[in-house]
Simulated scan of single mutants.
Amino acid sequence: MSIREKLKQWKRFAAGATAAVLCAGLLAGCTGKNPAGSSDGTAAQEGPQRYSTIFYDAFDTVTQVIAYCDSEEEFTRQMDALHADLLEYHQLYDIYNDYDGVTNIKTINDNAGTAPVQVDDKILGMLELARQMYNTTDGKLNIAMGSVLRIWHDYREAAGQTETDADNKLPSQEELDAAARHCDINNLVMDEEAKTVYLTDPEMSLDVGSVGKGYAVEMVAQAAEARGLTSALISVGGNLRAIGTKPDGSQWSGGVENPWNASEFYTSDSSYVAAVNMSDMALVTSGDYQRYYVVDGVRYHHLIDPATLWPAAYFNGVSVLAPDSGVADCLTTGLFCMPLEEGQKIVESLDGVEALWCTTDGQLVTSSGWSSHEKK
C-alpha cells in the first residue's frame, strides 16, 4: 500500500472525529493506572487512582477515557460496561450496515414508504432530540437530509479511491435539487406509544451523523454515573463529556483545535485556540477540516447547508459547551450552517450553553458566558 493510500485510509477512519480534544494528555495515553506501590518500598497512594483506556471500534473513531476509580477492577468493570453501551448505540444509529437481531436507522430507511418500524427507546429518544433541535436551529439541523448527504458522501468516497485530486468530481445542482425534494422532516412520523418510526416519503432517508454520536456519549455517560462512576473524561472522536471533577476538586480540561492549523492526524504540535474547564459538561466542535475532499484546489467538507445544499461557508469551526452532549452535537452543526448573528441569538437564548465561532477571516467570536469557562 502506497503512502498516499495509507493516508487516505486513515483519513476515512478518522473522519468521524470532531475537533474538540483533550488538554490533559489523554491523546497520548494508553490503558494503565497509577502504581499502588513501587519496588523501592514507597507507600501506595491513597484514594481514587487515575486510569485510562482506548477503544477503536465504536462510531468509526477513537474512544478514549480517563477516570479515577478506587481499584483497577472497578475501572475495568466500568469500562467494559461503557464500551458495551457505545457499541450498542453504534449499531442502532448505523445508516450503512445491518446487524443480526438489530433494528437500526438503516432499517427505518430501508422501509421508507413501506411500513412503520418498531424501534428501541434509544432510537426514539435520539430522534425526538433531533426533531426538537431542528426547531431550535430553524431547520439548519435536519436529520431528514439523508438523500442529499448520501450524494456528498458518495462523491467523497469516490475521491478517496482516485489517484490525484484532478480526478475528483462534484455533484450537479440538478442532482442535489432532486434529492432535496425528499428532505421534509414532517415526513418523519414517530408513534411514542407504539414505539414506531415511519418515513412516509419512499425516497426519504435519515442521516443522524449530526446527533447520534453526541446523544450516545451523553447516554453512556449518564449510565456510567448511574453505575457509580463519579470522575471521568470521555472522548469519542473528540466529542468530550466530563463526569464530575477530579478527586482533588479540580475540573477537567478540554481544548478546541486550531482550524487554521489543523492536521488530519494528531501530533504533539497540534495547536489550540481555546481551552475550557469542564465539570458535568460536554464540548463538541464541528469543523471544515476533518471530513472533506478537494476539487480544483477547493476543499468541499461534509457540513452541508440545507439552504444551498453545498458545504456551508460561514465558518471554519464552531464549538459548543453545554450540559448535554447530544444538544451540543446538534448545535455545532446547526450553528455552522447559519450566519453569526443568527447563531448568537440562539446560543444566548439557551440556558447553560456557550459557543465559540472560528470565522473564515481568522477571528474568534465567543458567546457572552464563554470566558467564564476558559482555562486560565
Rank of each mutant, 00 (worst) to 15 (best):
D57G: 05
K33T: 13
L82V: 15
V197L: 07
L127T: 03
M79F: 15
D288I: 00
G29N: 05
V62R: 12
T359R: 04
T114H: 15
T200E: 09
D201M: 03
N187H: 11
E88L: 08
S39E: 15
C30G: 06
V189K: 15
A44Y: 12
S279Q: 15
G249Y: 08
L170A: 10
M219S: 10
H373W: 15
L331A: 09
E72G: 14
T359I: 04
K213D: 11
V102H: 02
Q173P: 00
T366M: 14
Y89G: 07
V217C: 04
Q290F: 00
Y292E: 03
V294D: 09
Y51L: 02
D60Y: 10
A312P: 01
S253E: 15
A307L: 10
A144F: 04
D165M: 02
M126P: 03
S263D: 13
I346P: 00
T31N: 04
D120A: 05
E203W: 06
Q49E: 12
T196V: 02
G317L: 08
F55Y: 13
F336V: 02
M190G: 10
V365S: 09
V211K: 13
G146F: 07
H373D: 00
G228F: 02
I304F: 05
V353G: 03
D305K: 03
I108A: 06
V211R: 05
G125V: 10
G113P: 03
E46F: 04
G249Q: 08
I151E: 09
G139L: 05
P339F: 08
T61Q: 07
A44L: 11
M278C: 06
T162I: 02
N277K: 15
Q45N: 15
Q64K: 13
S270H: 02
D165R: 00
L199F: 09
F59A: 09
G139C: 04
R241Q: 13
S371F: 03
V353H: 02
K345V: 07
L7V: 06
D305R: 02
I108H: 06
A274C: 06
Q290L: 01
L7P: 01
E193V: 07
M278Y: 13
G160S: 14
S372R: 13
Q132K: 11
T308L: 04
G209I: 01
Y56V: 05
D296H: 06
E193A: 14
L129P: 02
A274E: 07
I123G: 09
G214A: 12
V189D: 08
Y51Q: 01
P48C: 12
W152G: 04
A312C: 03
T285E: 11
P339I: 07
V276M: 03
V365Q: 12
A58C: 09
T333K: 11
N135S: 05
S268A: 14
Q222K: 15
M338L: 04
D154V: 00
I108G: 07
Q49L: 15
M145A: 04
M219G: 01
D121N: 13
V236H: 10
C358R: 05
D60F: 12
P48V: 13
V276T: 10
F59P: 05
L303G: 01
N186D: 14
N168F: 04
G101W: 06
V211I: 12
R291W: 00
W260R: 07
N187G: 06
R181H: 09
L124N: 11
D85K: 08
V220T: 15
D40R: 14
N261H: 12
D121Q: 13
G32E: 14
I54S: 14
A178E: 07
D85A: 10
G29H: 06
P247I: 12
